[in-house]
């Protein structure tokens, strides 16, 4: 059941708490923004004040600007804003990613942002927060999306890398620079270290390391990196390098694209990478259904992904749900 006097509203600027006077992950400039995580479709430019976890704050200072007005809050701490309580809980999506609980005496709302329930080696594990109203993504909200464990995924990836090393071929692994790249770095067998990184990935690693994350050994690829050094190495780069001259220096190489979309053969073939690794930061179909049930909410709001289909499915399962419009993008190549 929808609330009569909702604590959070869906506006054309983003998710809004009138009583608290703040927005969550807004897509237009506002005075006060609470940010779930550092990806560009959630943490945007132009807010007068930001509130996030410390790691997300570090990411925003690097991406948006060191001079933003921001404040940070640790996980599981309560903060009072104009008579409304807010607290941040791990979302398991990328380092620093949070679900934001907004509550007053009558309603508990959870804005989950982007999340993932399967554990990985870099994100604080997802914590289930029971609530009255749950706002969820559905990026992979179709029954074909079911993730394997990191152990299985990296077992296969490491096997592929060993074969390449045997043939003195570079293994170029493509994944976006915040989150995916570090998860790849941590999942790779230690005997393959150091990992060589594209500038975008290297800079993000530096930001996260400075914020206190313990990362495997990595090196930047620069103009001065000798070509001889790059033989049979593991290289992590954003997907945008496919088809650009940057790759030429790495010859001979094979490419592997890491994304949840690699589940589908059509997407793998369209991508033109040598290998597809099914690796996602988002919740899969079983995880999504389990979460939506376990939060025991009265009403579910679906912001992005296969929203229409998923809401119809939830209603058939006897769960009240609505599609709400947002400008969140789910898993893209450009993050």
């Amino acid at each position: 059941m929808r609330p009569k006097d909702p604590l959070l509203q869906f506006t054309d600027k983003g998710i809004y708490c009138e009583k608290g006077g703040f927005f969550i992950d807004p897509w237009r400039p506002v005075d006060k923004a609470l940010i779930t995580h550092g990806h560009a479709d959630h943490a945007r430019w132009g807010m007068k004040n930001y509130l996030s976890t410390p790691i997300t704050e570090a990411i925003m200072k690097y991406r948006i600007g060191a001079d933003i007005n921001s404040e940070s809050i640790g996980f599981n701490h309560k903060k009072r804003i104009n008579g409304v309580h807010v607290s941040f809980f791990p979302a398991g999506h990328i380092p620093g990613s949070a679900q934001i609980l907004v509550e007053d005496t009558s309603q508990r709302w959870v804005v989950s942002g982007d999340y993932k329930v399967i554990e990985d080696s870099i994100s604080e594990p997802f914590e289930l927060v029971k609530c009255d109203y749950f706002i969820t993504e559905s990026t992979f909200g179709l029954p074909v999306y079911r993730w394997r464990t990191d152990e299985e995924i990296f077992g296969e990836l490491n096997q592929w890398i060993s074969e390449n090393i045997e043939n003195k071929i570079n293994s170029v692994i493509l994944g976006y620079s915040l989150g995916k790249a570090q998860r790849l770095l941590q999942g790779i067998d230690n005997s393959f270290l150091p990992v060589y990184c594209h500038g975008a990935v290297y800079n993000m690693n530096e930001v996260l390391a400075a914020a206190g994350m313990d990362l495997n050994d990595y090196k930047p690829i620069t103009r001065d990196t000798p070509k001889d050094e790059l033989k049979g190495r593991v290289i992590i780069a954003p997907p945008s390098v496919l088809g650009t001259p940057w790759l030429r220096k790495l010859k001979p190489y094979k490419t592997a694209m890491a994304s949840g979309w690699m589940t589908l053969r059509g997407a793998r073939r369209r991508r033109n990478a040598d290998k597809g690794i099914i690796l996602s930061d988002h919740v899969d179909w079983p995880g999504l259904n389990a979460t939506v049930k376990a939060v025991e909410a009265e009403h579910i709001y679906v912001t992005h992904g296969y929203s229409d289909i998923y809401v119809q499915y939830l209603r058939e399962q006897g769960i009240d749900a609505d599609v709400v419009k947002s400008e969140y993008e789910g898993e893209t190549d450009t993050e």
């Binding site: 179709l142 029954p143 074909v144 999306y145 589940t263 053969r265 059509g266 289909i309 119809q312 058939e316």
Partner: peptide, 26 residues
């Protein structure tokens, strides 16, 4: 066998674009 309604299977099939593949994944 997957415990999903037929319409959801059909919608998914239209997105995946290949019947054999859809079945193998659901």
């Amino acid at each position: 066998e997957s415990g999903i309604p037929l319409w959801l299977f059909e919608d998914t099939y239209h997105i995946v674009g290949d019947l054999a593949e859809t079945v193998s994944l659901v």
